[in-house]
Design a protein around this nucleic acid. Structure first.
Lengths: 342, 342
DNA sequence: CTGAAAGCGCTTACAG
DNA sequence: CTGAAAGCGCTTACAG
């Protein structure tokens, strides 16, 4: 493969001149440019990005690490939407996305640091904030550009993140159900170790309290984002009889689908007897029967915003003030929810 | 950030010794190793992967390029399953996956070459073979490691690829329908410009011919992998009246879902009056009503195989003989297909 | 506008 | 087992 020296020799100029022609920044005479370009063409020359990266200390790459060990991670719309947003924002800025795998939740942080400290990427977007590992603290200590998708723990005020308005949106959904006459509303959260789960639960509590309703602890369950988790939640709550919920809010659509299935298996009509609302507006939401009412979370937009902010940070010479962006969710009303039975 | 020289100075050794300790290949005395490691720890040293890559001419990265411009690309299970397979195979071999975006189908090839020729990755897996661009020819000419997911055009015999047995599997599905008494069977392909579409169509033709059935051209349509495409196919075929198909085979589940919806809108009972079979076993296949019979294509396994083969090629010093792997598909029978109406 | 030189941070034959 | 040197292929201040 031809190098900059080969081109220089062929064009009869100094290698630095070839470099200048390709970087496009310095003024080079029209004539020299022509000579260099035709020599480059003749030799099939393309600058070596690795050598360039070493020299300028910039890779034009942002990273993300993905717990590939969890099959279910690839069933949800979360992952593809995140990738879509990252790519759509990175592409026009001439950035690529480096994806690292990870073996476990704890390994996510190991891999993140390996990529960052070995300079394989200029910065990272961290897409899964868990409460059991202090990713943020470690990242801050490292002094490398990063942006979070999802809020950090409260004591990290000066960190850049983008999130959906989880607490408020969840509260709105619950309030919506309350307006439809529901009083006994179930909260089926995802993984309690994930920060967003807590935010949603607070939204739920706030809405209930705001309406002067008290909730019973048996209306709260965690389904770990799996369809089976939703199914089990229903089976645990149905025995409450007259105290069983008339509406379920689930933190993703997969769990909502499990809830629908459990209800169907128990001959409970949706939405006539019980309402169900999911989250994410995944592909299956429109395909289940009845079509799922769901809280649409703009993951692709969030990822695109995160990538844009990250690249801004990378390109800036000085540290940038932290920015926090909160994107709104939208309730998509379909046919799985409605007024409480008379 | 500390470099190898800092560590060397601190440990009182030559930089090359530090390098040897970290590469782990050369024999270094226990004592020296200790000194180097503790110096490294004290300084928070981690080798710069970019510098290493430049020196050894290897990045430990494989690439894939994704047409991020098509929103629908991220709705199908194809993309996440491919990523899952790549990551699961790459991770244990200590490889990362570089994802490049692309603006259009033609741009896929531009981006592919940019990544490869600028040495940002050691090789590439090409996941979308189109007939309108000679990706393979260009790749062969380049002499860079690559493996295809999907067969190349017939005249490239000595190229490494992995594919599902599309023609045979489609033929089997159609034969299965024939055994159930169907005689008028529709073929709803994806994008005619994609190689797999032709393979599936040949399987369809073969099965029909093998059973002594002739097919009518009006039973053949292309839905471009979109739900609306499936819907329209039904609307085009229903006016055939007594000649309308009693069974539909669709090249992905999204189109099959569109077919189901069109049939429902026309009050045609599935599977009592008409059968439909999709492809891919996507998430929605289990959630539609009736649950979709579908041809499961092992995309994650194909991608994992491709990644493994690619890394083998990269790691081998000499060019490896090309290998072709064909993975089997599985018909998942659910409730959208059955015997033809009496 | 162009050249010569030093440097980015590693690796690895070559000596000893 | 360890050191000194050259090299991977660029970029960029410094001169002129």
């Amino acid at each position: 493969m031809a190098t900059i020296r080969d081109v220089a020799a062929q064009a009869g100029v100094n290698p630095s001149t070839v470099s200048r022609v390709f970087s496009g920044k310095a003024k080079i005479s029209e004539q020299t440019q022509q000579r260099v370009m035709s020599a480059a063409e003749a030799l099939g020359f393309q600058p070596n990005a690795i050598a360039r990266s070493l020299s300028v200390r910039r890779t034009n790459t942002i990273a993300v690490v993905v717990p590939h060990i969890y099959d279910g991670y690839f069933d949800d719309s979360f992952f593809p939407q995140i990738m879509r947003g990252l790519l759509q924002a990175a592409y026009p800025l001439d950035y690529r996305v480096l994806v690292g795998g990870s073996d476990s939740h704890a390994d996510v942080i190991t891999q993140t640091f390996q990529i960052l400290r070995s300079h394989q990427a200029d910065g990272i977007v961290v897409a899964s904030s868990r409460l059991d590992v202090d990713t943020v603290g470690a990242l801050v200590a490292q002094g490398v550009p990063f942006v979070l998708i999802g809020k950090p723990p409260a004591h990290y005020a000066d960190v850049t993140w983008v999130d959906a308005d989880n607490e408020v949106c969840t509260a709105n959904v619950v309030t919506h159900l309350i307006h439809q006459g529901h009083r006994r509303i179930a909260f089926v959260g995802g993984d309690p170790a994930v920060a967003v789960t807590g935010e949603r639960f607070r939204g739920y509590q706030r809405a209930m309290a705001g309406a002067g309703l008290s909730y019973c602890e048996r209306w709260v369950d965690y389904g770990y984002f799996a369809e089976a988790g939703g199914y089990k939640a229903v089976e645990r709550m149905l025995p409450l009889g007259a105290d069983a919920p008339t509406a379920y809010y689930a933190a993703n659509d997969l769990m909502a689908v499990g809830i629908l299935r459990a209800l169907r298996d128990h001959q409970i009509a949706v939405p006539q007897q019980v309402s169900v609302i999911g989250t994410n507006d995944s592909a299956e939401a429109t395909h289940v029967v009845p079509a799922l009412t769901t809280l649409r979370v703009p993951y692709a937009d969030m990822a695109a915003t995160a990538a844009t902010l990250l690249i801004d940070m990378i390109l800036a010479d000085e540290p940038l003030p932290p920015v926090q962006e909160v994107l709104p969710c939208t309730l998509i009303e379909r046919h799985s929810s409605g007024p409480v039975a008379a």
